[in-house]
Design a protein around this nucleic acid. Structure first.
Length: 586
RNA sequence: GCGGUCAUAGCUCAGUGGAUUAGAGCAACUGCCUUCUAAGCAGUGGGUCGGGGGUUCGAGUCCCUCUGGCCGCGCCA
C-alpha cells in the first residue's frame, strides 16, 4: 500500500516473528495484521497495539485468550522491530525496538528527503478538481475563501498522493446574472466609474438592480417581475450572440478577471485551467440532444425542458432549458462534464462547492448517470460561512466582506505585531504576508469542512495556539538551529545511540506522515493534515524546549540535528500542502 | 411539510473502519527569558460527548426517536 514511504508499515507486515505466530494460530496474513495494528505513542503500556476484539468473533475465542496466546507464541529476535509483546485485557501491546525503528524511519527520510510522505496511491489516475469558481462581476468575498482554500489544498494533497490533478476554476461568467448586470449598466451605469473601481461599482449596480426589482426583502415578489424578465431577455440575447451585448459582457468579464487575479496572487492559488461557464456556450446543444436521445428530456407545458428524477427519490426535476430557451447552471455543468471526460478521462471529478448545493449536485450526478457519463463525481461540500450579526452573506443585499480586505487586515495586524522589531521594512512585509495569509488559510483549513463557520476577525487572525503562526514559528526555530550548527545535510544517522523521550516522540510522529496524507486525500479532509501538523509541532516544541541541541555532544548532536532537519522538512512540506509558506526567520 | 446536515469543557474545535483512563487551542489562575527565537514552555481548574431508547462483552463513534441550530426544496448560480 505504501510503496516507498511508510517504512513503519512495511516493518509491521514484514515482522517475521509476529506474522508467523499469527499465521500459525489464527491464519492471519501480514497485511491483515498491519491493518489491525495501531500506533499508541506516549502510552506507557506499549508503543504499538493490536486489539484482538475483531478476531474474537470470527475465531470464537475471547479477546483476552487471543492476545494471551499471541503473546506466548511470539518471540522477537534481535533484528526485529519489536522488543516484546504483552497481553493486557484483549490488547496485545508491543514495545518498539527504538534503535531499529529510528534507524528505519530516519533512513526513509534520508532516502526521500523533501518527498518524504508522498504516495503512489493515485499513480496513473487523473482527478479534476472544480474549485473557487467565483462569479464574475461580483466581489471576491470572504464567502469564496472556503472553496478556494479547500480546493487548492486538495489539489496539492492529491498531487502529493500521486494523482495527476487538474485544478479547474469554473468561473461563473454566464447566466441570468449577466442579464441583470447588463440591464443595470444600460440604465444606470457609468463606464468611467466602473473602470476606476470595477468590482465595487459593478456590485453597486447589482445591488441597485435587486433593490429596484424589489428583491431585497426576504419575501420573493410574485412571479413575472418586469426587471427580472428584461434581465432574462438580455441574457437570452447574450446567449444568441448579440454583438453589442457580447461586447459589454466581454468588457465586464475582462475587468473582473483582472481584479480576481490580484486576489489569487495574494493567496498564491493557481489552476491548471480557467474555463468559465461561457466556454461551454457552444457545447450545450449536444447535452440537450443527448438527453433527448436518452429519452429523459421532458417538455413542460410552459415550454421549459427538464429531467425528472423521482425514481431516485429526488422530487425536484432538473431544469435544462428555460421556457425562453436559454440555458441554466445545470446545462452548463453537464456540458463541462462532457468536455472534461473527453479531454482528460478523469477517474474522478470533485466539486468543491458549498453544502447548500447538495440537492443540486444530487440532481446533477443522477442526470449524468442517466446520460451515460463514466467519471465518478463527488460533491466535496463545506459549511457556509456566516456573519455573526446578519447571518448569511448576500451579494444581492451588498453585505459582503471582501476577501482582499481580510487579507490586507491580516497583513496589517502582523505588521503591527512586529512593531519595534529590529527588521527592515521588506523583511517585515514578507513576514506579514506569510503569517497573515497563512493565519487566514489555516483557520479555515484546520477545521472539518462540513461545519458552518461564523466569520470572526479575532479567530481568523489568531496568532497563537493552534494557528499557522505557531507552525511557522516552529519551522523558523528549527531552521535557526540548523543555521547556527552549520549542519551538514548529507550527514548520516548514528546508530546504537540511545534516545530521549522527546526524540522518540518526534520520530513516532514523523513516521506517520504518509498515513495522514493518505487519509486526508482519501476523505478530502485537509483538516486532518492541519491537525497532524499542529500535533507534530507541539512535539517538536517540547523537544526544542527540553533538549539543548547545539550544546549537546556527539554523536547525540548529529542525530538531533538530523531530527530537526527531518521535522523542518516535513512541516514545510505539510504547510505547503495547505498552501501556507514558511519563513527562515520570524 | 419533506429532505440534508450539525450538536463534545465558558468559547472555538480534534477525536481516522466501535476498544485500554474523552483530547487540543483560546479565555482564567500559577510559575519560567544571562543558555539554539517567550508568536514559546510547564502546571491548575473546567466535560453525565443535546435528551431518551436500542445493538454489543464494550458506544462520543453504529441504529431508532425526540429536541435545537443551519441549509435546501423548477425557470438564480
Amino acid at each position: 500500500m505504501f510503496e516507498r514511504t511508510g517504512l513503519l508499515m512495511n516493518f509491521y507486515t514484514a515482522d517475521k516473528a509476529l506474522s508467523e505466530a499469527a499465521d500459525i494460530l489464527y491464519s492471519l496474513t501480514g497485511e491483515e495484521l498491519s491493518s489491525m495494528i495501531k500506533f499508541t505513542p506516549g502510552d506507557p503500556k506499549g508503543d504499538v497495539v493490536l486489539p484482538c476484539f475483531s478476531l474474537a468473533k470470527s475465531r470464537k475465542k475471547s479477546p483476552g485468550v487471543i492476545s494471551g496466546e499471541l503473546a506466548n507464541k511470539v518471540s522477537f529476535g534481535s533484528d526485529s522491530l519489536f522488543l516484546k509483546a504483552e497481553s493486557v485485557g484483549g490488547y496485545l501491546n508491543f514495545f518498539l525496538n527504538y534503535e531499529k525503528f529510528a534507524e528505519g524511519v530516519v533512513g526513509d527520510f534520508l532516502l526521500m528527503k523533501e518527498t518524504y510522505g508522498s504516495l503512489s496511491l493515485g499513480a496513473g489516475k487523473k482527478v479534476v478538481i472544480d474549485y473557487s469558481s467565483p462569479n464574475i462581476a461580483k466581489p471576491f468575498s470572504i464567502g469564496h475563501l472556503r472553496s478556494t482554500n479547500i480546493g487548492a489544498s486538495l489539489r496539492n494533497i492529491l498531487s502529493f498522493a500521486g494523482y495527476e490533478v487538474i485544478g479547474d476554476n469554473h468561473l461563473g461568467d454566464w447566466g441570468t446574472q449577466f442579464g441583470k448586470l447588463i440591464y443595470a449598466y444600460i440604465n444606470w451605469g457609468d463606464r468611467e466609474k466602473i473602470e476606476k473601481d470595477p468590482i465595487k461599482e459593478l456590485l453597486a449596480l447589482y445591488v441597485k438592480f435587486h433593490d429596484e426589482a424589489g428583491l431585497l426583502g426576504d419575501e420573493r415578489p410574485e412571479k413575472g417581475n418586469e426587471l427580472e424578465e428584461s434581465a432574462r431577455g438580455y441574457f437570452k440575447r447574450l446567449e444568441e450572440g448579440d454583438p453589442e451585448i457580447t461586447a459589454l459582457w466581454k468588457w465586464i468579464r475582462d475587468i473582473s478577471l483582472k481584479d480576481f487575479q490580484r486576489v489569487y496572487d495574494m493567496l498564491g492559488v493557481s489552476f491548471e485551467e480557467i474555463l468559465g461557464e461561457s466556454f461551454y456556450n457552444d457545447k450545450m446543444q449536444e447535452i440537450i440532444d443527448l438527453a433527448e436521445s436518452c429519452g429523459i428530456l421532458e417538455k413542460d407545458t410552459d415550454g421549459s425542458e427538464l429531467v425528472r428524477l423521482d425514481k431516485f427519490g429526488i422530487d425536484t426535476p432538473l431544469l435544462l432549458r428555460k421556457k425562453d430557451g436559454a440555458s441554466l447552471y445545470a446545462t452548463r455543468d453537464l456540458a463541462a462534464l462532457l468536455y472534461r471526460e473527453r479531454r482528460w478521462a478523469p477517474e474522478k471529478i470533485l466539486y468543491v462547492v458549498g453544502e447548500e448545493q447538495r440537492l443540486y449536485f444530487n440532481q446533477l450526478f443522477e442526470t449524468a448517470n442517466l446520460l451515460g457519463f463514466k467519471s465518478k463525481c463527488e460533491h466535496v461540500s463545506f459549511g457556509l460561512m456566516t456573519l455573526p450579526s446578519e447571518g448569511k452573506f448576500s451579494t444581492r443585499k451588498g453585505n459582503v466582506i471582501f476577501l482582499e480586505d481580510v487579507l490586507k487586515e491580516a497583513h496589517d495586524r502582523v505588521k503591527a505585531f512586529l512593531d519595534g522589531r529590529d527588521l527592515d521594512e521588506e523583511a517585515k512585509n514578507n513576514i506579514a504576508d506569510a503569517v497573515g495569509i497563512g493565519a487566514v488559510k489555516y483557520n479555515d483549513l484546520s477545521q472539518n469542512r462540513k461545519k458552518t463557520v461564523a466569520f470572526d476577525w479575532n479567530k481568523m487572525l489568531a496568532m497563537d495556539g493552534n494557528s499557522s503562526p505557531y507552525l511557522q514559528y516552529g519551522y523558523s526555530r528549527a531552521r535557526a538551529i540548523l543555521r547556527k550548527a552549520n549542519f551538514d545535510f548529507s550527514a548520516s544517522w548514528n546508530t546504537g545511540v540511545d534516545l530521549l523521550d522527546e526524540e522518540r516522540n518526534l520520530i513516532n510522529k514523523l513516521s506517520s506522515f504518509h498515513m495522514v496524507v493518505e487519509s486526508a486525500s482519501a476523505q478530502f479532509y485537509p483538516h486532518l493534515l492541519a491537525t497532524w501538523l499542529f500535533e507534530l509541532t507541539q512535539i517538536f516544541t517540547a523537544f526544542y524546549t527540553n533538549v539543548k541541541v547545539l550544546a549537546s555532544e556527539e554523536p547525540y548532536r548529529q542525530n538531533r540535528l538530523m531530527l530537526i532537519d527531518f521535522y523542518s522538512s516535513v512541516v514545510k512540506r505539510g504547510l505547503a500542502l495547505l498552501g501556507i509558506s514558511v519563513l527562515e526567520e520570524m
